[in-house]
Amino acid sequence: MKTVVITGSTRGIGRGLAENFLASGCRVVISARSQEKVDEAVKELRAVHGEAAVTGIACDITSEQDLAGLWAFASATGPVDIWINNAGMSIVRKSLWEQSADDLRNIVDTNLTGLLLACKVALAGMLDQGHGQIWNMEGFGSTGQTNAGMAAYGATKRALNYLTASLQKEVKGTAVQVNTLSPGIVVTDLLVGDYDFSSAEWQKTRKILNILGDTVETVTPFLVRGILGAHKSGTRVAWLTGRKAFWRFLTAGFNKRDLFAGYDSQPA
């Protein structure tokens, strides 16, 4: 039974990954900043998968002490086989000069500094135990995409790929692997929170997202299968490939779907 640690896993993609790892027979350790949210998620998951299969602990990834505590908690009963750096944040889409300094510091502290610290802790633990896989979660900007209003978020995700490539060189010759997950465009609160639903820009963006986007329930089973089937450092598991995106646009006229209908009915 493999032990899997997922940061930021009480909701969204992280929660979907946890559910699919559990369904595959893995032991899962979930985490989030709030212990209350962790306890609630653990209770819900145990009701389906059993008490022994899932545990959880609060962890703020900007704190090295919290991350060390997460590693100690997860490894107390055996080695950590898979560590997924999923936790992250976004800020409202607007031009850089309109962003607050606090928001810019927070997104860098979480998406980049937090990632560095998480990799530091997980790598040290895995090298000590003699094996393990680290998976870093790509996002918009990771492979060079640019868009207005996404300067800060995209910069942190571009840095993620540089870090991942560098760490792959650092672990060369060991039994530790550093890999990449690319979920594509997944409808989560993190994605939806970036947009003003009353704006004309949103109506244009919505059409594109309905072509290229998918739900957590669609994407996460694919990602988990890819992770469990990976055996070498440098593996990239990607849901939305260029070929798939091309086919989506080609057949868009025949596939009328609205991934955001549920959000329209929510109060402002």
Rank of each mutant, 00 (worst) to 15 (best):
Leu190Val: 13
Ser24Trp: 04
Arg15Asn: 13
Gly229Tyr: 04
Ala74Thr: 02
Arg105Tyr: 12
Gly144Val: 06
Glu40Gln: 14
Asp214Met: 06
Val80Trp: 00
Leu223Asn: 06
Leu17Cys: 07
Ala23Cys: 07
Ser31Leu: 05
Ser63Trp: 00
Glu19Cys: 02
Glu44Gln: 12
Gly253Ala: 08
Glu201Phe: 10
Lys157Tyr: 05
Lys43Ile: 05
Thr174Ser: 13
Lys157Pro: 02
Gly114Asn: 03
Gly78Trp: 00
Ala58Lys: 11
Gly14Arg: 08
Gln35Met: 10
Arg105Thr: 13
Gly78Val: 04
Asn85Lys: 02
Val237Arg: 04
Asp109His: 07
Thr215Gly: 10
Glu201Ile: 10
Ala261His: 10
Ser265Val: 13
Ala200Gly: 10
Gln266Ile: 11
Val176Arg: 03
Val29Phe: 01
Gly229Pro: 00
Ile57Gly: 01
Pro221Gln: 05
Leu240Lys: 06
Gly12Thr: 06
Arg46Asp: 02
Asp264Lys: 11
Ala200Met: 12
Pro79Cys: 07
Met137Arg: 03
Gln168Pro: 00
Thr241Lys: 07
Gly69Trp: 02
Arg15Ser: 13
Ala23Thr: 09
Thr7Lys: 07
Leu191Val: 11
Val5Ile: 13
Thr77Asp: 11
Ile57Glu: 02
Ile84Gly: 00
Val224Phe: 03
Asn147His: 13
Phe260Cys: 06
Ala76Gln: 12
Lys43Asn: 11
Gly184Asn: 09
Gly229Asp: 10
Val192Glu: 05
Leu181Ile: 08
Lys232Asp: 07
Trp83Pro: 00
Leu96Pro: 09
Ser182Phe: 03
Asp39Met: 02
Thr205Leu: 14
Leu104Gln: 15
Ser63Tyr: 05
Pro183Val: 05
Gly130His: 08
Glu138Thr: 15
Ala68Gly: 13
Met89Gln: 14
Tyr195His: 12
Ala72Gln: 11
Leu117Ser: 04
Gln168Val: 02
Leu45Pro: 01
Lys37Asp: 12
Leu117Glu: 05
Trp202Arg: 09
Thr241Gln: 07
Asn85Ala: 05
Ala58Val: 05
Ser166Trp: 08
Thr205Asn: 14
